[in-house]
Write a protein that binds this DNA or RNA. Structure first.
Length: 843
RNA sequence: GCCCGGGUGGCGAAAUGGCAGACGCAACGGACUUAAAAUCCGUUUUCCGCAAGGAAGUGCGGGUUCGAGUCCCGCCCCGGGCACCA
C-alpha cells in the first residue's frame, strides 16, 4: 500500500475492473427486485462541466446504493443527439453535424467514465442513429393513424434566429428559450401532436404522482391551465343595410357568467376571423381596419405587457345579451387575445379590472351586477372593479344568489335555452413538432397531388436523413433543397410526389427513450411490451428542473398515448422524480453568481479537477456541497476539504493496515468493551442508521457524508496500536470497514481499493450494506439537560432507565438548578425521557 | 395579481416541537520545520466579564406551548412558475 493517496493510479484501475466484470450489465429478463434508475440523457455539446456532473454523480450514487441493497439495477445512458447547436456549428464552421455529434459523444462518454459513473453501455441509445429514429418515425405514424398527429395551418411562433418554428413550451416571455430572440407570429401549415386530448388526464394524474416534487407538479398544473366556465353566444343584431353575416352569433368564453347582467359591451380580438366581413360596408369599417393593422404591428411581448394601455374601436355592430335580451355595442380591442377562449370577451366593467379601465377610457356604461357580502357597493364610489365573488344584484331571476351557486345554474340555463353551455377551457395548446431544420428525425410523410397527405408505409421506415446537404441559413429545411430526397413516388399511387422536408422537434426523440433502453438493439420493434411492463415506470428519474414542463410533460403525454394504444400498460413514465439544483459559480469578471455555463465563462472542467484531486474527491464534494435539490455555489476550497477527508481515510488505513488486518478474525463483543471502544461502537451503528435513513427517504447525501466524517473523527479519537486490546482492535476493524462500505457509493474507487487492502475480494458492490445492531445503540448512562422556564441551567448524568419521578427529584436537588428555583413556586415539571427536564417556576 | 419555494455564524450548511449552529470551509493561536507547504493540537454566533458566569440570538411583529428555527396569524425580502387567460 502506498503512503500517499494514489488516486490517479487506482481510479482508472477500478473503472476498468467494473467494465471487465460487467458489474453494471443488467439481466433484463430475470431481475431480482428490479430498480430502474434513470438520469436524463444529455445533449452532447462539447465537453461536460462539473455542473452537468451533479446529475450523473447523484444517479450513480443511487444506483450503487440500490445494488448494495440487493436490487437488480438498470442504469442506462444514451444521447439526445439531434439538435440545433450541431447544425448551427455546421453552418458556421462547415463540420457535418454527424461528425461533431459523434466526437462530442465520445468526449462526454470518456468524461462520464472518468467520473466513475457506471452504466450498462450495451443498452446505449443514440437518437440520431437510424435504428433509433426509425422508431421515432414509427411512433409518429401510430399517432397519425389515431388522429394524434395532424397538419394544420395556424399562427405559430417563429424564431428568426433559429430559423424555425417553436412549440409554445419553447417560448419564454415572448422569446426563444434557446437563443432569447423575440419570436414572431407566422401563419404556417405545420404538424402538431394532439396533446390537448390528454389535458384533463395530464392534470388529474399529477395528484397520484406522490414521488414528484410539488413544485414540478404545480408548474405543470399552471401550464395546463384548466379554467371552468361557460360558452355564451351573443346573437348579432341584424345590419341596418340588410346584408347577411357569415356568422349568426359571437361565442364568448367566461368564467364569470354570474356577472353577465352587468355586461355593457362585447369585445373581439383584432384577429377575430370574420371581423372584416362583419364591418364591410359600414362607416366604421376603415377605422376598424386601421386599428387591426396597427395592432398586428405591435410585438407579442408589448401586446401582452401589463404596462401598455388598452386600445380599441367601435365596430358599428351590436350584439344581444341572451340573458337580458338587451343590445350592447360590439368593439374590437387589443387586450383580447385570439389564442385564448374564442377570441371574444363579454365586457363587465363593474367586475373586471381590464373592462373597467377600458370602459372608463372610452366612456362606456358600467353596471353593477354583483354586491359584496355587506351590500355596500355603490357605483359612483367605486375606484376600481369589484372582482370578488358576491351576491347577484339586478340580475333578473338570479338576483340574490351567491356567485358560486349562480355560475353552474346560469351555465345550465344557457344550455337549456340553446345559447351556450358549461365549458372547460385549457391553456395548453397542441404541440407543434415541425422544425424547418436538418438535424432531426424526418417526418415520414409525402405529399401527392392525387392522394394528398400520405404516410410512409411502416415497412419502408426509416426515412433516412441524407448526409449530403448544403448547410445554409434560411427559413427552410436544407432537406427541401435535396432533390433526390424530396422527389419520391407516392407510396399509394406511384405518381411523382414530394416528401415533407421538415424534421421533428428533438423533444419527440426524448419522449420515449426510456422505453428504448430495454430494447436498444431490437430491430423488430420500438420497444418490448413485456419488458416495459417489468421495468417501468422508472423507479427513480433524476434531472434538471428546466425540464419541469417541456420534456416531463411530453414524456407523460407519450406514455398515455402509447398506453391507450395498448402498447404499454402503465400510464405514467416516472414514479419518483428528483430535480437537482444548478451548480453556480461567481464570475471572475463581475463577481456575480451565475449558473455554470460555457457562455458565462465560469465553468470548472472535470478533467482538470480529476487530474488534480481525483474523481472521488470531485464526487464527494459535489454531493457534500449542499442539499442536492437546491442550487449551490461551487467553491474551490470546498474541493480541498473533500480531498483532505479522503486522504485522511487513506492514511489511517495505510498506517494501521497490519493492526486492522490482524483483527480480521475478531468480532466486537459488547460485554468486554471499555468506554472508548463502547462509544466508538455506538457511533458506528448510529452512523449506519443515519446514513441509511438519509439515502432511503430523500437524497440527503450532504448529511450522509457529514455523518461519515463524524465517524472518521471518532475513529481517530480512539488510539490504536499493535498493543491495543482485542476488543479495541475488533471495534476499530468494524469501524473502518463500515466507513469504507458506507462511503463506497460516493467514493467508489477509493473504497474498492481499501476494501481490497482490508483483505476482501472485490467488488465492494457485492458487499452487503451494513445492518444496525440495536444493542450497540443502547446507553447505560445518559446526560440530561435541566431547564428552568425553558432555559438551560444545568446537566446531570443519570442511568438510562431512570423513571420520571427520580429524574424530577434529582433535577430539583441539583445545586446549579437550586440557584434558579430558590424562593420560587414550582408550578410544573416536564420530564422528556432521554432528553431533558424542564422546571416551570413562578414568583 | 395568483400559485409554489426559501430567509439560521465570516461562508456552504445541520437540527422526529426538546441542549441552535453537527459536518465542512475560512480565520486566528500553537506544535513540527532553517523556512514555507503539508500535517497535527486548540479557539471561533454576538454582547458584558480577568474569570466563574450572565444576557441576547434562526428576516420582522404577534400567538399557541412547560418549551418554537420547527406549529398558527399578519407582514418584509429573495428566487421560481403562471398571467391583459376573460
Amino acid at each position: 500500500m502506498k503512503e500517499k493517496y494514489p488516486f490517479s493510479e487506482i481510479e482508472p484501475k477500478w473503472q476498468q475492473f467494473w467494465e471487465e466484470e460487467a458489474l453494471f450489465r443488467t439481466n433484463l429478463e430475470a431481475p431480482e427486485n428490479p430498480y430502474y434508475c434513470l438520469m436524463m440523457f444529455p445533449y452532447p455539446s462539447g465537453t461536460l462541466h462539473v455542473g452537468h456532473g451533479r446529475n450523473y454523480i447523484i444517479g450513480d450514487a443511487v444506483a450503487r446504493y440500490k445494488m448494495m441493497r440487493g436490487h437488480t439495477v438498470l442504469s442506462p445512458m444514451g444521447w439526445d443527439a439531434f439538435g440545433l447547436p450541431a447544425e448551427n456549428a455546421a453552418i458556421k464552421l462547415g463540420v457535418h453535424p454527424r461528425q461533431s455529434t459523434f466526437e462530442n459523444i465520445e468526449t462526454a462518454k470518456r468524461q462520464l467514465q472518468a467520473w466513475g459513473c457506471c452504466y450498462d453501455w450495451s443498452l446505449e441509445v443514440t437518437s440520431c442513429l437510424p435504428d433509433y429514429y426509425k422508431w421515432t418515425q414509427w411512433i409518429f405514424l401510430q399517432f397519425y393513424k389515431r388522429g394524434l398527429a395532424y397538419k394544420s395551418e395556424a399562427p405559430v411562433n417563429w424564431c428568426p434566429s433559429c430559423n424555425t418554428v417553436l412549440a409554445n413550451e419553447q417560448v419564454v416571455d415572448g422569446a426563444c428559450e434557446r437563443c432569447d430572440t423575440v419570436v414572431e407570429k407566422r401563419r404556417l401549415s405545420q404538424w402538431f401532436f394532439k396533446i390537448t386530448d390528454y389535458a384533463q388526464r395530464l392534470l388529474d394524474d399529477l395528484d397520484a404522482l406522490e414521488g414528484w416534487p410539488e413544485r414540478v407538479k404545480m408548474m405543470q398544473r399552471n401550464w395546463i391551465g384548466r379554467s371552468d366556465g361557460a360558452r355564451i353566444d351573443f346573437r348579432l343584431a341584424p345590419r341596418a343595410d340588410g346584408r347577411p353575416d357569415p356568422i349568426e352569433a359571437v361565442p364568448c368564453f367566461t368564467t364569470r357568467v354570474d356577472t353577465i347582467y352587468g355586461c355593457t359591451y362585447m369585445v373581439l380580438a383584432p384577429e377575430f376571423p370574420h371581423l372584416d366581413r362583419l364591418v364591410d360596408g359600414l362607416p366604421e369599417a376603415s377605422a376598424v381596419r386601421d386599428f387591426v393593422a396597427t395592432a398586428s404591428r405591435i410585438s407579442a411581448i408589448d401586446r401582452t405587457s401589463d404596462a401598455i394601455e388598452k386600445n380599441g374601436v367601435f365596430t358599428g355592430r351590436q350584439v344581444v345579451n341572451p340573458y337580458t335580451g338587451e343590445t350592447v355595442p360590439l368593439w374590437v380591442a387589443d387586450y383580447v387575445l385570439m389564442e385564448y377562449g374564442t377570441g371574444a370577451v363579454m365586457a363587465v366593467p363593474a367586475h373586471d379590472t381590464r373592462d373597467w379601465a377600458f370602459a372608463r377610457k372610452y366612456d362606456l356604461p358600467i353596471r353593477l351586477s354583483i354586491q359584496n357580502p355587506d351590500q355596500t357597493l355603490v357605483l359612483p364610489e367605486m375606484a376600481d372593479a369589484y372582482t370578488e365573488d358576491g351576491l347577484l344584484t339586478d340580475s333578473g331571476p338570479f338576483t340574490g344568489l351567491p356567485s358560486q351557486e349562480a355560475i353552474p345554474r346560469m351555465a345550465t340555463y344557457a344550455a337549456e335555452q340553446g345559447f351556450g353551455e358549461p365549458t372547460v377551457h385549457f391553456r395548453l395548446r397542441d404541440w407543434l413538432i415541425s422544425r424547418q431544420r436538418y438535424w432531426g428525425a424526418p417526418i415520414p410523410i409525402v405529399y401527392c397531388d392525387q392522394c394528398g397527405i400520405v404516410p410512409i408505409p411502416e415497412e419502408q421506415l426509416p426515412v433516412v436523413l441524407p448526409d449530403d446537404v448544403a448547410f445554409m441559413p434560411g427559413g427552410e429545411s436544407p432537406l427541401a433543397r435535396h432533390e433526390s430526397f424530396m422527389n419520391v413516388p407516392c407510396p399509394t399511387c406511384g405518381a411523382p410526389a414530394r416528401r415533407e422536408s421538415d424534421t421533428m422537434d428533438t423533444f419527440v426523440d426524448s419522449s420515449w427513450y426510456f422505453l428504448r433502453y430495454l430494447s436498444a438493439s431490437d430491430e423488430t420493434q420500438a420497444f418490448d411490451t413485456a419488458l416495459c411492463d417489468r421495468w417501468l415506470p422508472v423507479d427513480q428519474y433524476i434531472g434538471g428542473i428546466e425540464h419541469a414542463i417541456l420534456h416531463l410533460l411530453y414524456a407523460r403525454f407519450f406514455t398515455k398515448a402509447l398506453h391507450d394504444m395498448g402498447l404499454i400498460h402503465f400510464s405514467e413514465p416516472f414514479a419518483q422524480l428528483f430535480t437537482q439544483g444548478m451548480i453556480c459559480k461567481r464570475s471572475e469578471k463581475d463577481g456575480q453568481l451565475y449558473k455554470m455555463s460555457k457562455s458565462k465563462g465560469n465553468v470548472v472542467s472535470p478533467d482538470e479537477l480529476i487530474r488534480e484531486y481525483g474523481a472521488d474527491t470531485s464526487r464527494v464534494y459535489t454531493l457534500f456541497i449542499g442539499p442536492p435539490e437546491r442550487d449551490a455555489e461551487w467553491n474551490d476550497r470546498g474541493v480541498e476539504g473533500a480531498f483532505r477527508f479522503l486522504r485522511r481515510l487513506w492514511r489511517w488505513v495505510y498506517e494501521k493496515q497490519s493492526i486492522l488486518n490482524g483483527a480480521r478474525e475478531l468480532r466486537p463483543d459488547l460485554a468486554s468493551m471499555e468506554t472508548p471502544e463502547r462509544d466508538l461502537y455506538r457511533k458506528i451503528h448510529e452512523s449506519i442508521r443515519r446514513i441509511t435513513q438519509d439515502l432511503d427517504g430523500a437524497f440527503h447525501f450532504n448529511t450522509a457524508i457529514a455523518q461519515i466524517m463524524e465517524l472518521m473523527n471518532a475513529v481517530e479519537d480512539v488510539p490504536l496500536d499493535a498493543s491495543s486490546s482485542d476488543s479495541r482492535r475488533a471495534v476499530h476493524r468494524e469501524a473502518i470497514e463500515s466507513i469504507v462500505v458506507l462511503l463506497s457509493p460516493f467514493a467508489p474507487h477509493l473504497c474498492e481499493e481499501l476494501w481490497q487492502e482490508l483483505g476482501h475480494a472485490p467488488s465492494i458492490l457485492r458487499a452487503p450494506w451494513p445492518e444496525v445492531n440495536e444493542a450497540a445503540l443502547h446507553r447505560a448512562q445518559i446526560e440530561m439537560v435541566i431547564q428552568v422556564n425553558g432555559k438551560n441551567r444545568g446537566r446531570i448524568e443519570v442511568s438510562a432507565g431512570a423513571d420520571a419521578q427520580s429524574l424530577e427529584a434529582e433535577a430539583v436537588r441539583n445545586p446549579q438548578v437550586q440557584k434558579w428555583i430558590e424562593g420560587k413556586t414550582v408550578r410544573k415539571v416536564i420530564v422528556v425521557p432521554g432528553r431533558l427536564v424542564n422546571i416551570a417556576v413562578s414568583g
